[in-house]
């Protein structure tokens, strides 16, 4: 249990630190890769919490997503390298207040309630993956299929929005 607490805390701190770095650096590639670091640390937290399939999946998906995010940053930013020292923020005070309030509210909610008994044992990774597959093809099939249709819709929508107008 102690190793679990330590690794969850370590990767949690890492995730927060990388998350803060995303908005502190002025180089766009750096901030995209910091987000990747944050998300990979979240994946490592999943692994520490014995959700092996989800952890590995998270680490895989985010690598591609965030690298592609980096190229879009460079394409669309005024100052991708951060050498021009442009300020690209607004309403700073409101945002800080909102962020701190959100975090504090979440922390209060985490601390106040009694969460009830903690379950110590957890199914093994092979068992979990098997059960997840059965669940997806059985009870949650509609949910899963909805996600598939949503992906298709988003692909078509994104392509049709982004495609150049023919004159």
């Amino acid at each position: 249990m102690t190793w679990q607490l330590l690794s969850v805390a370590f990767f949690g701190l890492l995730a927060i630190w990388f998350g803060v770095t995303v908005f502190r650096t002025s180089s766009m590639v750096r901030s995209a890769l910091s987000l990747l670091g944050s998300m990979a640390a979240v994946g490592a937290m999943f692994l520490a919490m014995q959700a092996e399939f989800l952890g590995v999946l998270q680490i895989m998906m985010m690598a591609t997503e965030m690298t592609i995010m980096a190229i879009f940053m460079v394409m669309y930013m005024m100052d991708p390298g951060g050498l021009g020292q442009m300020d690209m923020t607004h309403q700073k005070r409101v945002s800080v207040a909102a962020g701190v309030t959100g975090a504090l509210a979440g922390i209060l909610l985490a601390l106040l309630p009694g969460w009830g008994p903690i379950v110590r044992s957890v199914p093994g990774p092979a068992r979990q993956t098997h059960d997840l597959g059965i669940e997806l093809m059985n009870r949650s099939m509609i949910v899963f299929e909805t996600a598939g249709v949503a992906i298709l819709v988003a692909m078509i929508a994104a392509t049709s929005v982004a495609i150049a107008r023919r004159r």
């Binding site: 879009f72 909102a98 985490a110 903690i118």
Partner: peptide, 27 residues
């Protein structure tokens, strides 16, 4: 451990909220 994970979640949410509100660039 549960509380630590939830606190991490809350802090990440706060950082994300700050970022979404304070940045001017869509990406």
């Amino acid at each position: 451990t549960l509380v630590v994970a939830l606190v991490v979640g809350a802090s990440l949410f706060g950082v994300g909220l700050y970022g979404a509100l304070s940045q001017t660039n869509l990406v």
